[in-house]
Design a protein around this nucleic acid. Structure first.
Lengths: 349, 349
DNA sequence: GTGAAAGCGCTAACAC
DNA sequence: GTGTTAGCGCTTTCAC
């Protein structure tokens, strides 16, 4: 754009000195005399000189920019990730270029290429659901661009990854119910093909086993769409059946919300008749305080961690100390118990 | 970064031609012979040549990048705005640099300056809550950087704005209740200092007046925190009082959700006993289908519209046809009635 | 049809 | 302590 840009040259001309002197004065180089520094800074202020970062970028072959590819911005979890990334990047002096794949493979490829062309110093990548071919990723890795995967990763042996420990989170959730005395805990499963669902189901089963409770198939309830309505409908069905559940572990909070409503409409009390805990995907867990506990996915921390990992690699690379290594950070979920009213201990027995 | 970058020079050397020829061949310049073009393109493909956009940016004084300052990424509304921006920007070939003010004035100032230094072609700006001084904005406007404000704006006479018509939305919401036969409609107000609250309250009052219904202060219910619990508590209080309401217009969906729960726990039916409609801030409206209607804020469209406006200004500026003009787009809210079961018409009388 | 040269704004080696 | 020069990768005017 034709901004009426003030350049180093303008300052040099006006002061009858050379551009390099101005450049040095501006960065407080020890060689430069105090007088020149003063003059330069004064004039720079007066003209409201702003350095042209683009020129700098070209010169230094470094843009201080990281590219972020995100499957879907409008998703509570991913938006917290972005926020964490932005937080760390800002403090470290990096810009964030955001690109949304919208779960489309072709968009992802296009974005990776465009980000490379913009010479971002590194990329944070969470793969789209469609992605099964990884040539685009290999290609930029081979070009030496540091990459960190978050949440949805590709098994490259030379790039770092940040993931959430859903298995442990699920165990913790179920243990929380058991500790309150629940013995018949149902699990609303959610989209069955996703790794998170599988891991959480595994955590559910293991928690039961470790507590010597039976794992019964009829308590593992398919809820493929993972929606509020489905959670409600399924729960109504369960309540009308012979199953006598006293706890629900939900794959997400919309379903937990639906379950809660079904239970309340039936005239039952939460948590005393049936306790509920759910993973917080949409953060409506935050809104359903009085009767529910939730397990939070640490999206913000994931963004921070991924950005930190990436920036460390970038800075090492600048110093030529960079050697691509795989590093895997596994983040713990957080058990959020907003509800102080646990089940009455009397029931425990 | 020291990517093993393939440059135009490399291609030129290998082919024994000049860099300028390569440059022209790559952009299919008519002067260049078919043979050279073929050779150049073949080699470029083979070496996987990717143009260095940074160099281009410096050369053309244009970065094809827009800077976005957002108060808070982790907010349903703003995340939809980002998504809309990204959508339009991507299709127009622009990068999006995202900067979060976190509702802090000093961060906002720092970001505006940094974005200018990165020579973004234009900025999309929504002011932080703290911002009362506008020097930083004036400064870059005076430098000729196109700006479009969205949602939270500064009254500059030379920059465009995109806002939501909350007043009309509120009227539509209340009319929707009235059309179903509600006569005693309460309004859960929400944070009273925000313009959106004021506009929505105004819409509520005017809708009543235009339908010859009385505006009664005891039906305008303060809910300053705007939370689920507050909505629930307040509604319980209302239900226990002498007020006999048959409709609720809520400033947001968490409160609407709370109201719903209070009503259901009391054993009343929605919408037949009491109908509810709420503005959708957290999108949990999407999740509360069976019993509620919502008014959506068009965040995605706002992002799209703002980006379109900005890009148009940028492209005009490139052609030197740019003359800063104020343009105000007022976006309509969307009445979302997911619930087909309106109040029974019998009750209308 | 192709090449040489200049320049975008900045910095850093090398002079003096 | 300051100036000169070259160059980051690309495009574009002007030659031929």
């Amino acid at each position: 754009m034709k901004f009426n840009q003030v350049t180093i040259k303008d300052i040099a001309r006006e002061l009858n000195i050379s551009p390099s002197t101005v450049s040095r004065a501006l960065k407080d180089h020890p060689d430069i005399s105090v007088d020149t520094k003063k003059a330069v800074n004064a004039l720079a202020d007066k003209l409201n000189y702003q350095p042209n970062i683009v020129a700098l970028n070209l010169r230094q072959k470094k843009t201080n920019t990281i590219g972020v590819i995100i499957p879907e911005v409008v998703h509570f979890f991913f938006s917290t990730v972005i926020s964490g990334i932005e937080d760390v990047a800002y403090q470290a002096g990096y810009n964030v270029i955001l690109a949304q794949s919208n779960e489309s493979y072709s968009r992802e490829v296009a974005h990776v290429k465009a980000l490379f062309n913009s010479r971002v110093d590194g990329m944070l990548l969470s793969l789209s659901r469609e992605t099964t071919n990884f040539d685009h990723v290999e290609s930029i890795i081979s070009k030496g661009v540091p990459i960190v995967f978050y949440d949805r990763m590709y098994n490259s042996p030379t790039s770092s990854k940040v993931i959430v420990d859903d298995y442990a989170g699920a165990k913790e959730a179920v243990n929380h119910l058991i500790a309150q005395g629940c013995k018949n805990i149902a699990h609303l499963v959610g989209a069955p093909n996703l790794i998170i669902s599988i891991e959480r189901l595994r955590g559910y089963k293991d928690a039961l086993k470790e507590n010597n409770l039976p794992v019964r198939d009829e308590y593992i309830i398919a809820c493929d769409s993972g929606t509020f309505e489905e959670g409600k409908k399924i729960t109504e069905k369960v309540l009308a059946s012979k199953l006598k559940i006293d706890g629900i572990f939900s794959n997400n909070d919309p379903m937990a919300m639906g379950a809660m409503l079904a239970i309340k409409e039936k005239g039952l009390k939460i948590p005393d008749d049936i306790a509920i805990i759910g993973f917080s995907n949409w953060f409506i867990g935050e809104l359903m305080e009085p009767s529910l506990s939730t397990i939070d996915q640490p999206g913000f921390e994931m963004g921070q961690e991924a950005a930190r990992l990436l920036i460390r690699q970038i800075e090492l690379k600048v110093k030529d100390q960079y050697e691509p290594v795989e590093e895997i950070k596994v983040l713990r979920t957080r058990l959020i118990i907003r509800n102080s009213s646990l089940r009455k201990q009397a029931k425990k027995k």
